[in-house]
Amino acid sequence: MPFPSREATLPAMNEFELIEHYFRGWRGSHPDLILGQGDDCLIWHPRRATVMSIDTAVEGRHFPAQSSGAQAAQRAFLPALSDLAAMGAEPAFFTLALTLPGPMDDAWLDAFARRLSELSEHYGLVLAGGDTTSGPCRVISLQMHGLVDAPLRRDGVQPDDDLWVSGFPGRAAAALPSVLNPAQASAPVDWVAAYWSPEPRIELGQRLVGLASAAIDVSDGLAADCGHLARASGLNLLIETSMLPQAPSFQGYPEDQVGSWILSGGDDYELAFTAAPGQRDAITALAAMLNLPLTRIGRAQAGDGQVLIGHNGEAHTLSKTGFQHF
């Protein structure tokens, strides 16, 4: 859903001054990074298999125009990092391509750079390079790089596997009216936090290597992203509505609305994964160790790569499965 437009305000700084002022001197290093910022290319010599993913966040499309610099940094960085979690990877480094409207908003950019630096340090990534330019609106592209010996993939689902999901999906979608119009709509604190500060399940992804047969992060909606697992593996995935985890803050809301938030809402960045039934005890123990709900919500079965929704003993497809980027 596009967000309202914003008027830009600001002073002038050229590209090289901007990079030097906001994005140099950050703490953090990585032994595989031979040459980082400051040359035509970075040089990376990995010890292990490297996985890479790139995400783009566009103002008015992926974050509201009224977002603070810190909020925009979170909305760009954390979803991008979630792709590494889905592969079971250890975060290593990232690159940043940043488009800014003129004149430049120094306060916004300072808050953006500070929050991005904090997040990169917290999750153990090095900013290894990138690009800056001007344009009609703010666009943030982040390429994430991680290391993993046996990456989790989408095409590994096996017949009769269990289907699981972490956390409480649906809260970010439920928060959207409040995000768009905070003066006109309110939302529980955990909904707003789920939208602005999603938590990439990095440790969960790493610990699922050897337990899970396939995994994906839930970015565009639980049903839609499970559909990617189903199509990649050539099997159907049946999601039972009676097994879906419901956040305590959903109590009192209409069942149909809650079901729509959980199944079709995006921006959760939880992990959906499959595993053999023999792994149930190990996954239950993992949930306790991480203090993170891991809920079995369905199973894989023979089929042609569809997601089916089981409700009151019947199975059907959803007409609306999740967020569309185009």
Rank of each mutant, 00 (worst) to 15 (best):
Ala92Ser: 15
Pro101Cys: 10
Glu59Phe: 04
Ala86Gln: 05
Pro64Cys: 05
Thr99Glu: 14
Ser82Phe: 07
Ala80Gln: 01
Leu35Asp: 11
Gly69Trp: 10
Thr95Val: 13
Ala92Pro: 01
Ala70Pro: 08
Ala57Trp: 02
Glu90Ala: 12
Leu96Ser: 09
Arg61Cys: 12
Gly60Lys: 06
Ser67Cys: 11
Met52Ala: 14
Pro101Thr: 08
Arg47Glu: 14
Ser53Asp: 15
Ala57Gly: 06
Leu81Arg: 00
Ile43Gly: 07
Ile43Trp: 05
Thr99Leu: 08
Ala49Lys: 14
Thr50Ile: 10
Pro46Ala: 04
His45Trp: 07
Ile43Glu: 12
Pro79Leu: 00
Glu90His: 14
Leu98Gly: 02
Phe63Met: 07
Thr50Ala: 13
Trp44Met: 03
Ala76Ile: 03
Leu98Ser: 08
Gln66Ser: 15
Arg47Asn: 12
Ser82Pro: 03
Ala70Cys: 07
Gly36Asn: 09
Ser67Gln: 09
Glu59Met: 12
Thr99Met: 13
Pro101Glu: 10
Ala72Asp: 10
Met87Pro: 01
Gly60Tyr: 08
His45Pro: 00
Thr95Ile: 09
Phe77Trp: 06
Pro101Ile: 04
Ala89Val: 05
Gly36Leu: 08
Leu35Gly: 03
Leu84Asp: 04
Arg75Gly: 00
Ala49Phe: 00
Ala85Ser: 12
Leu33Tyr: 07
Arg47Thr: 11
Cys41Thr: 15
Phe63Thr: 03
Met87Tyr: 10
Arg61Asp: 13
Thr99Asp: 10
Val58Ile: 15
Ile54Asn: 10
Arg61Val: 15
Thr56Ile: 12
Leu33Thr: 09
Glu90Leu: 15
Ala73Gly: 05
Ser67Gly: 10
Ile34Ala: 10
Arg47Cys: 08
Phe77Ile: 04
Pro46Tyr: 03
Pro64Asp: 04
Leu100Cys: 11
Phe77Lys: 00
Asp55Leu: 15
Ala89Arg: 02
Ala86Leu: 03
Phe93Asp: 01
Ile34Tyr: 07
Asp39Ile: 05
Glu90Asp: 13
Ser68Cys: 07
Arg61Gly: 05
Ala57Ser: 15
Trp44Val: 08
Leu84Gln: 01
Gly36Val: 01
Glu59Ser: 05
Asp39Tyr: 14
Ser82Lys: 03
Arg47Asp: 13
Gly88Trp: 05
Ser68Trp: 07
Gln74Leu: 03
Phe94Arg: 05
Gly88Ser: 09
Ser82Arg: 01
Ala72Lys: 05
Thr56Gly: 00
Gln66Cys: 12
Trp44Asn: 04
Phe94Asn: 07
Phe93Ser: 00
Gln74Thr: 09
Cys41Ala: 14
Gln66Leu: 12
Ser53Glu: 15
His30Gly: 00
Phe77Tyr: 14
Pro64Arg: 03
Gln74Tyr: 00
Leu81Thr: 02
Pro46Ser: 08
Arg61Gln: 15
Asp32Ala: 14
Leu98Phe: 11
Asp39Pro: 03
Ala72Thr: 06
Ser53Cys: 11
